[in-house]
Design a binder for these strands. Structure first.
Lengths: 168, 168
DNA sequence: GCAAAAGCCTACCGCGTTGGTAGGGATTGA
DNA sequence: TCAATCCCTACCAACGCGGTAGGCTTTTGC
């Protein structure tokens, strides 16, 4: 499960990308628009600021604002900054690697071989997608929804999106 | 993070696939070979038995044994049975779907759009890989290791395995 | 210069899940 | 009948998650 912290952060970033021209947006405004607990969001935006993604201004007319272009914000970094490494096994994390105590031989560990693929695909998507691309996809989805789904699957430079039909 | 339950289960299944001909294998034997706490593994194998993947026999010469062919065991099902749905968001799970309370519009939710791809790829790999294939990959890795890595990347009908170089 | 609006900082906390352990009962083969 | 093995119930400590509370600091507008 993706932690609430990361979910809220992504929503807030999309919101801020949309309101770039408006100057600083106060936390309360974002919280209200996206239905996020205000004080919790406060802590999240602070972390994003410390990560260099946002800037802040205090006092009336203050608030948060993107520091960099949406096209340079990689979503994997956002999640990593807020919720730590995404590796499904400690032995697959580069930034926080450590051996699985139970692993007899890492090179031939079945679990590791399997999850390495999962991890690679996850990173390909999350680090390969920027905030700008995500905003574009939301726009496309909104357009498709409004126009009665006439233009489905218009995912720009999009991921596989094949017709998978697995459970869960 | 993949829970220990699922990791242990996968290791045990690979072990059992290797020892199919030996008849039932006692829990203690698997636990010793794979460095898994015995009583914990006991509970796990019981669940796999209730899921129809294993059979058991009691008394001396008893133990656990695969009930079905390794080529019919899909690893996604193993993980689901032991650790529940794998969806990164509740609104992406088919078996345990429920709306995110904070989600204003599900169809245009940025987080959902993004994670849907991640989830699809995860399912493609985990539900698309069988126990038999996993055993084969372990063998291939062991062979490659022994032969001084002369035959790398021989992943049979394998996943992408491109040269990704992301952090974490 | 003062009030109000906003960000910043520290501390705390209930709850559920994870990763087990303990102990014993039920079966079954030698 | 003994011992190995599976089966079942109960319990439990530790940790992370998802917040909440309360106050301090900076800045703007009047």
């Amino acid at each position: 499960m993706l932690p609430m912290k990361s979910r809220y952060a992504l929503k807030a970033l999309v919101f801020l990308a949309r309101h770039q021209v408006d100057g600083p947006v106060p936390v309360a405004g974002i919280a209200a628009a996206e239905a996020i607990p205000t004080k919790f969001l406060e802590a999240i935006l602070l972390e994003l600021r410390n990560a260099g993604i946002l800037t802040s201004r205090r006092g009336p007319t203050g608030g948060y604002q993107l520091r960099v272009e949406p096209s340079t914000v990689h979503l994997g970094d956002v999640i990593r900054n807020l919720s730590g490494p995404m590796a499904p096994l400690p032995c697959l994390s580069k930034s926080a690697y450590h051996r699985c105590t139970e692993c007899v031989d890492e090179a031939t560990c079945a679990v590791r071989l399997l999850m390495a693929d999962v991890h690679a695909q996850t990173l390909r998507i999350l680090d390969g997608t920027t905030l700008a691309q995500l905003v574009a996809r939301v726009d496309a989805a909104a357009a498709g929804e409004a126009e009665g789904q006439s233009q489905r699957c218009r995912t720009p430079d999009g991921p596989v999106s094949g017709k998978l039909d697995f459970i869960d």
